[in-house]
Design a binder for these strands. Structure first.
Lengths: 65, 65
DNA sequence: TCATAATGTAAAGTTTTATTTACTATTAGT
DNA sequence: ACTAATAGTAAATAAAACTTTACATTATGA
Protein backbone atom coordinates (compact mmCIF):
# COMPACT_ATOMS: atom_id res chain seq x y z
CA UNK A 1 0.00 0.00 0.00
CA UNK A 2 1.11 3.51 -0.74
CA UNK A 3 -0.38 6.89 0.09
CA UNK A 4 -0.33 10.54 -0.86
CA UNK A 5 0.02 11.98 2.62
CA UNK A 6 3.40 13.60 2.05
CA UNK A 7 2.38 15.39 -1.15
CA UNK A 8 -1.01 16.43 0.18
CA UNK A 9 0.61 17.74 3.33
CA UNK A 10 3.00 19.73 1.14
CA UNK A 11 0.04 21.06 -0.81
CA UNK A 12 -1.42 22.44 2.40
CA UNK A 13 2.03 23.62 3.47
CA UNK A 14 1.92 21.81 6.77
CA UNK A 15 4.80 20.32 8.74
CA UNK A 16 4.50 16.79 10.08
CA UNK A 17 4.05 18.29 13.53
CA UNK A 18 1.27 20.60 12.42
CA UNK A 19 -0.57 17.82 10.66
CA UNK A 20 -0.14 15.57 13.67
CA UNK A 21 -1.55 18.27 15.88
CA UNK A 22 -4.51 18.89 13.65
CA UNK A 23 -5.33 15.20 13.58
CA UNK A 24 -4.64 14.60 17.26
CA UNK A 25 -1.82 12.11 16.79
CA UNK A 26 1.93 12.22 17.31
CA UNK A 27 4.43 13.45 14.74
CA UNK A 28 5.93 9.97 14.66
CA UNK A 29 2.60 8.55 13.58
CA UNK A 30 2.54 10.90 10.60
CA UNK A 31 6.10 10.06 9.77
CA UNK A 32 5.45 6.33 9.99
CA UNK A 33 2.41 6.59 7.75
CA UNK A 34 4.31 8.61 5.16
CA UNK A 35 7.04 5.99 5.22
CA UNK A 36 4.51 3.17 4.97
CA UNK A 37 5.61 1.80 8.30
CA UNK A 38 2.03 1.05 9.09
CA UNK A 39 -1.51 0.79 8.14
CA UNK A 40 -3.51 3.44 10.03
CA UNK A 41 -6.98 3.06 11.47
CA UNK A 42 -10.02 3.94 9.35
CA UNK A 43 -10.85 6.81 11.64
CA UNK A 44 -7.47 8.41 11.12
CA UNK A 45 -7.67 7.72 7.39
CA UNK A 46 -11.11 9.32 7.22
CA UNK A 47 -9.92 12.41 9.10
CA UNK A 48 -6.90 12.75 6.86
CA UNK A 49 -8.87 12.31 3.67
CA UNK A 50 -11.38 14.90 4.81
CA UNK A 51 -8.64 17.38 5.65
CA UNK A 52 -7.10 16.92 2.22
CA UNK A 53 -10.48 16.99 0.47
CA UNK A 54 -9.91 13.52 -0.92
CA UNK A 55 -11.60 10.18 -0.52
CA UNK A 56 -9.87 7.48 1.50
CA UNK A 57 -9.53 5.55 -1.76
CA UNK A 58 -7.65 8.42 -3.35
CA UNK A 59 -5.37 8.97 -0.37
CA UNK A 60 -4.55 5.33 0.36
CA UNK A 61 -3.91 3.09 -2.58
CA UNK A 62 -3.66 -0.66 -2.28
CA UNK A 63 -1.25 -1.97 -4.89
CA UNK A 64 -2.35 -5.32 -6.33
CA UNK A 65 -2.29 -8.19 -3.70
CA UNK B 1 -18.37 5.81 14.59
CA UNK B 2 -20.91 3.53 13.03
CA UNK B 3 -20.84 1.37 9.91
CA UNK B 4 -23.04 -0.45 7.43
CA UNK B 5 -21.21 -3.76 7.44
CA UNK B 6 -24.09 -5.80 8.80
CA UNK B 7 -26.62 -4.52 6.28
CA UNK B 8 -24.24 -4.70 3.34
CA UNK B 9 -23.29 -8.22 4.33
CA UNK B 10 -26.99 -9.10 4.40
CA UNK B 11 -27.39 -7.53 0.97
CA UNK B 12 -24.76 -9.90 -0.39
CA UNK B 13 -26.30 -12.73 1.63
CA UNK B 14 -23.04 -13.62 3.34
CA UNK B 15 -22.56 -15.07 6.80
CA UNK B 16 -20.01 -13.49 9.13
CA UNK B 17 -17.78 -16.49 8.50
CA UNK B 18 -18.04 -16.18 4.72
CA UNK B 19 -17.25 -12.48 4.82
CA UNK B 20 -14.34 -13.11 7.18
CA UNK B 21 -13.02 -15.73 4.81
CA UNK B 22 -13.33 -13.52 1.78
CA UNK B 23 -11.46 -10.74 3.54
CA UNK B 24 -8.87 -12.98 5.14
CA UNK B 25 -9.76 -12.19 8.74
CA UNK B 26 -11.43 -14.08 11.55
CA UNK B 27 -15.17 -14.24 12.13
CA UNK B 28 -14.66 -12.49 15.46
CA UNK B 29 -13.09 -9.57 13.70
CA UNK B 30 -16.21 -9.16 11.56
CA UNK B 31 -18.43 -9.50 14.58
CA UNK B 32 -16.41 -6.91 16.52
CA UNK B 33 -16.54 -4.45 13.64
CA UNK B 34 -20.29 -4.90 13.26
CA UNK B 35 -20.68 -4.28 16.98
CA UNK B 36 -18.37 -1.25 16.87
CA UNK B 37 -15.96 -2.91 19.23
CA UNK B 38 -13.15 -1.48 17.22
CA UNK B 39 -11.82 0.71 14.55
CA UNK B 40 -10.37 -1.45 11.76
CA UNK B 41 -7.31 -0.73 9.65
CA UNK B 42 -7.61 1.26 6.41
CA UNK B 43 -6.61 -1.77 4.41
CA UNK B 44 -9.44 -3.84 5.81
CA UNK B 45 -11.83 -0.93 5.38
CA UNK B 46 -10.76 -0.51 1.75
CA UNK B 47 -11.23 -4.20 1.03
CA UNK B 48 -14.66 -4.22 2.63
CA UNK B 49 -15.79 -1.10 0.81
CA UNK B 50 -14.63 -2.53 -2.49
CA UNK B 51 -16.45 -5.79 -1.87
CA UNK B 52 -19.64 -3.91 -1.10
CA UNK B 53 -19.17 -1.49 -4.00
CA UNK B 54 -19.14 1.45 -1.62
CA UNK B 55 -16.61 4.08 -0.66
CA UNK B 56 -14.95 3.87 2.73
CA UNK B 57 -16.79 7.09 3.61
CA UNK B 58 -20.13 5.46 2.86
CA UNK B 59 -19.34 2.28 4.77
CA UNK B 60 -17.79 3.88 7.87
CA UNK B 61 -19.43 6.99 9.22
CA UNK B 62 -17.83 9.18 11.86
CA UNK B 63 -20.55 10.72 14.01
CA UNK B 64 -19.97 14.30 15.24
CA UNK B 65 -16.68 16.12 15.99
C1' DT C 1 28.54 30.12 9.33
C1' DC C 2 25.49 29.77 13.05
C1' DA C 3 21.05 28.93 14.73
C1' DT C 4 16.77 26.96 14.25
C1' DA C 5 13.08 24.44 12.18
C1' DA C 6 11.88 20.25 10.02
C1' DT C 7 12.59 15.57 9.05
C1' DG C 8 14.57 10.84 9.73
C1' DT C 9 15.30 7.18 12.80
C1' DA C 10 15.19 4.12 16.73
C1' DA C 11 13.92 1.94 21.10
C1' DA C 12 10.81 1.17 24.99
C1' DG C 13 6.28 1.24 26.48
C1' DT C 14 1.06 1.50 26.08
C1' DT C 15 -3.14 0.70 23.83
C1' DT C 16 -5.97 -1.36 20.57
C1' DT C 17 -6.78 -4.43 16.73
C1' DA C 18 -7.01 -9.06 15.45
C1' DT C 19 -6.60 -14.30 16.37
C1' DT C 20 -7.81 -18.47 18.58
C1' DT C 21 -10.64 -21.25 21.22
C1' DA C 22 -14.62 -22.24 23.23
C1' DC C 23 -19.09 -21.99 24.85
C1' DT C 24 -24.05 -20.11 24.74
C1' DA C 25 -28.18 -18.28 22.34
C1' DT C 26 -30.89 -17.84 18.40
C1' DT C 27 -32.80 -19.10 14.11
C1' DA C 28 -34.32 -22.27 10.31
C1' DG C 29 -35.29 -26.67 8.41
C1' DT C 30 -36.93 -31.51 8.90
C1' DA D 1 -38.54 -31.67 19.27
C1' DC D 2 -34.10 -32.37 17.16
C1' DT D 3 -30.33 -30.92 14.45
C1' DA D 4 -27.32 -27.89 12.30
C1' DA D 5 -25.98 -23.35 10.91
C1' DT D 6 -25.41 -18.72 12.34
C1' DA D 7 -24.61 -15.16 15.55
C1' DG D 8 -23.38 -13.31 20.28
C1' DT D 9 -20.03 -13.25 23.85
C1' DA D 10 -15.82 -13.72 26.48
C1' DA D 11 -11.07 -14.59 27.76
C1' DA D 12 -6.27 -15.30 26.69
C1' DT D 13 -2.88 -14.29 23.49
C1' DA D 14 -0.41 -12.21 19.50
C1' DA D 15 0.45 -8.56 16.51
C1' DA D 16 0.32 -4.02 15.14
C1' DA D 17 -0.86 0.93 15.82
C1' DC D 18 0.36 4.70 18.31
C1' DT D 19 2.99 7.44 22.13
C1' DT D 20 6.92 9.27 24.27
C1' DT D 21 11.54 10.43 24.47
C1' DA D 22 15.63 11.28 22.50
C1' DC D 23 19.06 12.12 19.28
C1' DA D 24 21.07 12.57 14.41
C1' DT D 25 20.58 14.55 9.80
C1' DT D 26 19.09 17.78 6.46
C1' DA D 27 17.24 22.02 4.94
C1' DT D 28 16.49 27.27 5.62
C1' DG D 29 17.33 31.70 6.76
C1' DA D 30 19.64 35.56 9.25
Amino acid sequence: MKNLVKVERARLDLTQAQLADTLGVSRQTIHAIEKNKFNPSVILALKMAKLFSLTVEELFIIDEE
